[in-house]
């Protein structure tokens, strides 16, 4: 269990991590999501006792990292795949780590097998590709057979086969009851790997919830409505009718209309009442990626004070949120 309370890191006037409070529980894969530069790596370094927080605390199993009785056996981490001495063989690298943490040396060959680097174990790590470096880093994290695992962008540089392998590995580790905390800037990857999400933007907590809940809360369903081609008049009429009924409409480049805020049968009824023929009426759900983009972009917009173009018609003060997502899921209320 990793527990952060009011975790804050400032570099001079710049706040990299701002009042983060969250828990990472054992038994599930927790995705740590945020755009590049949002403070993920700084947070990871604070969890691992490498950087001291400016204020707040973070503990693993109740201990600050540097006071853990047997850190090397309790926690394993992959921070940077390139963080190896290029002149040292993969095996020597892992052996020195095993010795340092008091891990039996048979574990070295074992983790080399797990990540599939046994055949190249005697080659110098400097000759490794980025993907092989990632696997060596993962091997290092697994060395102590730890209860808590942290991975910073583990799929960087991996081919599709490798990505699938990492995903299976993470889920397997969590299924054994371990705490698995994986950072990524890719929502699509996290959607497939993680059970729980901690989302940050500009160092602040934006969401801390299950993937399913995140999707439900942050992605609005919408309908795509298509009037016959060349009937611009009909489309304008339908848009007006739907807007009057409380929907939000948005024309799409191919002539369709994106409608949110009304159930499909009601859209159909309104079209029928106004004699508008429909060639398409289909339900859609915004992807997790879109939900994430919306969430993090809105955070950026909040900060810079410049409304996004699509939200210009709604003044900031009047809407609960400029993108019409449910309030309370993120933003000031939870920070």
């Amino acid at each position: 269990m990793i527990e952060a309370r009011g975790l804050t890191k400032r570099y001079g006037p710049h706040t990299a991590v701002d009042q983060l409070t969250f828990q990472v529980r054992p038994g599930v894969v927790t995705g740590f999501l945020g755009p590049n530069g949002s403070g993920k790596s700084t947070t990871m370094r604070m969890i691992l006792g490498l950087d001291d927080p400016t204020s707040g605390t973070v503990t693993i199993g109740g201990y600050p990292y540097r006071r853990l009785p047997n850190a090397g056996r309790t926690v394993g981490a992959l921070l940077d795949a390139k963080a190896v001495h290029g002149g040292r063989s993969a095996r020597s690298h892992l052996l020195s780590l095993a010795q340092l943490a008091g891990v039996p040396r048979q574990r070295v060959d074992h983790v080399l097998d797990v990540v599939g680097l046994r055949d190249v174990a005697r080659r110098r790590a400097g000759e490794f590709s980025l993907g092989m470096g990632q696997r060596l880093g993962i091997a290092g994290a697994l060395l102590g057979d730890p209860e808590v695992l942290l991975f910073d962008e583990p799929v960087n540089g991996l081919d599709p086969e490798g990505i699938l392998w990492v995903r299976t590995l993470m889920k397997g580790l969590a299924a054994e009851g371990r705490t698995v905390f994986v950072s990524s800037h890719l929502m699509s990857e996290m959607a497939l790997t993680a059970d729980h999400l901690v989302v940050i933007g500009q160092g602040r907590l934006l969401a801390d919830m299950g993937v399913r809940e995140f999707l439900d809360r942050h992605s609005t369903g919408f309908a795509r409505v298509r009037t016959p081609d060349g009937a611009g008049e009909q489309r304008r009429l339908l848009a007006k009718v739907l807007t009057d009924a409380g929907a939000r409409t948005e024309p799409e480049p191919d002539g369709a209309l994106k409608v949110s805020g009304l159930p499909l049968p009601r859209i159909s009824d309104l079209a029928h009442q106004h004699d508008v023929r429909l060639h398409e009426l289909s339900p859609h759900q915004a992807s997790l990626e879109e939900a994430y983009m919306r969430l993090t972009q809105s955070e950026v917009t909040y900060r810079s004070g410049v409304p996004a173009a699509g939200a210009a018609e709604e003044p900031w003060g009047t809407a609960p949120h400029p993108y019409g997502t449910a309030p309370g899921g993120f933003g000031e209320s939870e920070v």
């Binding site: 097998d113 057979d145 730890p146 209860e147 086969e161 392998w165 590995l169 397997g172 054994e176 009851g177």
Partner: peptide, 27 residues
């Protein structure tokens, strides 16, 4: 070179799946 066949066996050999908190079989 390729990854070993999944699912990967991470814990030391012979580890039984333990419900709840993970405890490493490695001394």
């Amino acid at each position: 070179m390729s990854f070993p066949a999944s699912p990967p066996q991470v814990p030391a050999q012979g580890a039984a799946p333990v419900p709840g908190r993970f405890v490493s079989p490695v001394p």
